[in-house]
Amino acid sequence: MPTIKEHTLRISASTNELERIRHFVADHAGKFGFGEDDINDIILAVDEACTNIIKHAYEWKTGKPIHIQLALRGNEMLVSIIDEGKSFDPDSYHVPSMQDQLNQKKRSGYGILLIRKLMDHVEYRKRNSRNEIRMTKKR
């Protein structure tokens, strides 16, 4: 099935950019014909993925590249986010228990869980120094 529309945003890794990322996703998901609930899901998933890159892949070092591509293929939105930081091993991820997190005053680890709940399919790829998270959501 051909990809019919594609949009790209290149930003430098900074939480300053999160609002711009969300606007970019909202704008194009709306033009792709997604409903409000789906748009909110995609916005949050992309925010979580980019926040993880800023925090974990680049360890808060600003100025590093994040490349976000949105495409519509048939009835499905494809999201690709690429970074050049430390790679994430999805096999090492375990869903944290909320009560344990509270007891230990921990606060992170839920971005991945949210992404998995919000999107239909999520996969990670690593090629040379580039990491990619690919996510899809059906309309």
Binding site: D47, E48, Q101, K105, R107, Y110, G111
Partner: peptide, 17 residues
């Protein structure tokens, strides 16, 4: 208008204290 897990994390970090 909006919250991500980073925002939820603030509630988690201080509730026990």
């Amino acid at each position: 208008e909006y919250i991500s897990s980073a925002g939820l994390g603030v509630f988690m970090a201080y509730i026990e204290d």
